[in-house]
Amino acid sequence: MQSIGQGMSLRWLLAASFINSFAFGFIWPLTSVYLYNELYQTLVTIGWVMMANAVGQAIGSIVSGRLFDQFKPYRLIQFGVLAMIVLQVAFIIWHGWPTYAVILTLVGFFGGWLTAAINAYGTQVRSHDGRFVFNMLYFMSNFGMVFSTALVGPIYPFGITWLFLLALILYVVLFFIVHTKFRINLANYSREQQTTKIALPKWNLLLIYAGISGLVILWISYAQWQGNVSVYMNSVLKLPLWQYSMLWTINGILIAIIQLGMNALNLSANRRSMFIQIFAGIIMFGLSFLVLPFSHHFMGFALAMIITTIGEATAFPMIPALVNELTPLTLKGRYQGLTAAAPSVGRAVGPLVGGFIIQQQGYNALFYAASALTFVAFIGVLTSIVLGYRRTVRYEEN
């Protein structure tokens, strides 16, 4: 067991983040295509299924984050990995309709559970600055996605069962890592929380919830890439599935390059750089959707994905880092859980809203709406940080 003074090992935390993302990447990228082409479900039905999965992720993240501050994190994350192992076995046995949708919802719950637990463990790393830690967590998560999405396209024609089997093997590996490397004793923190109730300053709360709300809005737009764009490319434009899979490989590789570059230049540890990344990243993210209406071939989608990734890689990891800076030690799990839930809420709403817009106005209207929504998020986050950051209390310790 690691001591409290040592904190969490960054190396093993990043390994866990990589494996968790690698395994989960065999499940979600082809969900929309599988439901549409193999299980013959409509876009609206697919939207409801994706919503159920994402709501499960949001609830799992919130529950896990709150429990992190009150119970042994080791037991918490261990239970989440065991649940994912059981669910992969269930997927291998039952992946027809509607069983697939039910299991996918449970996978969402425990996927959110694990994401929040890993992020909360990130606040317990003592050896590096919090902004560096969350940059690296985001990098490793997407690095894992590079491998899985690159493999999904070639493996899927042999049957979706093989993807679930690979995910099962990875979660078994993750269980052994958690079992041997995640036993951090946080009992003293739990006792402190039970005896002292800490109320966050109002400006801290304002910025935290502005950041979380901004993430929700950004992920409503981002969810279109993960669901409706795959159907648009494969079923409307008749582009091969490997091209959609390749977009996510580009996404992961570019995130790796950007994150490693920022860390090499020590930008992740600079507070002013953090705000530049948030503001510029959101703007880039919004601009990317304006490319999609004019994209009818792979190169157009690749360009849009490159712009999307630049915005995502710079802005997205800085929001949990900002939340970490604005929360005391005994509340970090709770607010990291809420931060981890934000993308899930966006993924819950995004496919359903997107499917409705497509049926009423078409795909081009969807892309313009996603861009407009992103700029709404930018105004909200910019205003709250400019007006409130100087009035906040910063908790520098991780």
Rank of each mutant, 00 (worst) to 15 (best):
L76S: 06
H128C: 06
D69C: 11
G65H: 12
V102T: 15
G60Y: 05
Y121T: 11
I92T: 09
L82H: 08
A83W: 04
M140Q: 13
F110N: 01
T161Y: 00
V152Q: 05
V102C: 12
M136P: 12
Y100A: 05
A90L: 10
L76R: 09
I93Q: 14
G144K: 02
T161L: 01
P98A: 13
F139N: 11
F71D: 10
F143E: 08
G122D: 01
F71M: 13
I103W: 04
V107T: 00
A101L: 13
V89N: 09
S61K: 08
M140H: 14
Q124S: 12
L163R: 04
T99K: 11
Q88D: 12
V152Y: 02
Q70S: 10
P154M: 07
A117M: 04
S61M: 05
W113G: 03
F91Q: 00
L106R: 00
L104Y: 05
M140S: 13
S148Q: 04
V125Q: 08
L170S: 15
P73Y: 08
I103P: 06
S64M: 06
S141G: 08
I93H: 12
F110S: 02
Y156P: 01
Q88A: 09
Q124P: 07
N119A: 10
D129A: 00
A120Y: 14
G60K: 07
V102I: 14
G153A: 12
V63R: 05
P73R: 07
V125H: 10
G80E: 06
S148T: 04
L114A: 09
M84W: 01
M145A: 00
R131I: 07
T149A: 10
G112Q: 07
Y100K: 03
Y156K: 02
L151F: 12
N119K: 11
I62C: 14
L137I: 10
Y100C: 05
P157N: 00
R131G: 11
I85M: 09
A90V: 06
L151S: 11
F139P: 08
R131V: 01
V125M: 10
N142I: 02
I62M: 15
F79I: 15
V81W: 11
P157C: 00
L82M: 14
V86D: 04
F139H: 09
G144F: 04
F143N: 09
L104C: 06
Y138T: 11
L76D: 10
M84T: 02
Y156H: 03
P73S: 05
L151A: 13
F71V: 14
W94R: 10
R75W: 14
S141H: 02
A90H: 04
L166E: 15
L168D: 13
I77W: 15
N135Y: 06
R66Q: 10
T115I: 02
S148L: 02
Y171M: 12
T115C: 03
N135F: 04
I160W: 00
I85S: 06
L163M: 07
F91P: 00
G153D: 07
R126P: 14
G122A: 01
G144S: 03
I92N: 03
W97E: 15
G111S: 04
Q88C: 11
R66S: 09
A150D: 04
M136Y: 09
P73N: 05
T105F: 07
R131F: 07
S141I: 03
F91R: 00
G130H: 00
G112K: 08
